[in-house]
Computed example of a mutant assay.
Amino acid sequence: MSFIYDVLTQIGGMLRPYNNDIALALVASLLVITGGDINRYLKRQISSANFVVRTTIFIFVCTFGYGALTVLLTNILKTQLAALSSMYLAITVIGCFIALGVYAERKRQI
């Protein structure tokens, strides 16, 4: 058990300098996987509007909406990852990427 703890602590220590990059990768991956659903929902909501309005809304959602979500969620996630001990950081990062992979598989993204 001590060996597993030591390995996870070492992995977490190696990951710690990359918290911002890891948080960005997780958020970006989640937005890529769910982006189609978000766009479909938005399309249904604005389908009766004219072309110019639909296009303008889509541009604002894609540029400002996804951009703001990426920045805000990355900062929140980075802060949460920084608060974890090295052992739990390793477990959390590995678990999150596995969960995203499973989620992407279920949504037939991979």
Rank of each mutant, 00 (worst) to 15 (best):
Y88K: 03
L100H: 01
I11S: 06
I57M: 10
G101P: 09
T74P: 00
I91G: 02
S48P: 02
L69M: 14
F3N: 13
T92S: 12
L30K: 09
A28S: 10
K43R: 12
Q80A: 14
L8S: 04
G95T: 10
F97I: 10
I11N: 04
F58R: 09
A83P: 02
Q80R: 14
L100N: 02
L31I: 09
I33L: 06
Q45P: 00
Q45F: 10
I22F: 05
D21T: 08
N75C: 08
A28Y: 03
M14K: 13
S47A: 15
F58M: 07
I94Y: 01
T79W: 10
Q45G: 06
F64H: 03
L100E: 08
A90M: 06
A82E: 12
L8T: 05
M87P: 05
A99T: 11
T79D: 15
N75P: 01
D37G: 14
Q45V: 11
I57N: 02
Y66E: 03
S2P: 00
T70S: 08
F3D: 15
Y88V: 00
L42N: 00
I59Q: 04
C62D: 11
Y88L: 03
S29M: 14
N19S: 13
Y103S: 09
F3Q: 14
L31W: 03
I38E: 00
V27A: 04
V32N: 09
L30H: 11
T55N: 10
V93M: 05
I94C: 00
S86K: 08
L84S: 09
L81I: 12
S85E: 07
I76C: 08
V27C: 06
Y5H: 14
V27Q: 02
V52D: 06
I11K: 05
I33P: 00
S86R: 06
I57C: 06
V53F: 11
S86F: 09
M14L: 15
T70C: 08
V27R: 02
Q80P: 02
V53T: 11
D37H: 12
T56I: 08
K78D: 12
A82R: 09
L15H: 09
L69F: 12
T55A: 14
I46S: 02
T92N: 05
Y18D: 05
G35F: 05
Q109H: 14
T74D: 04
R16H: 03
K107R: 15
R54W: 04
G101D: 12
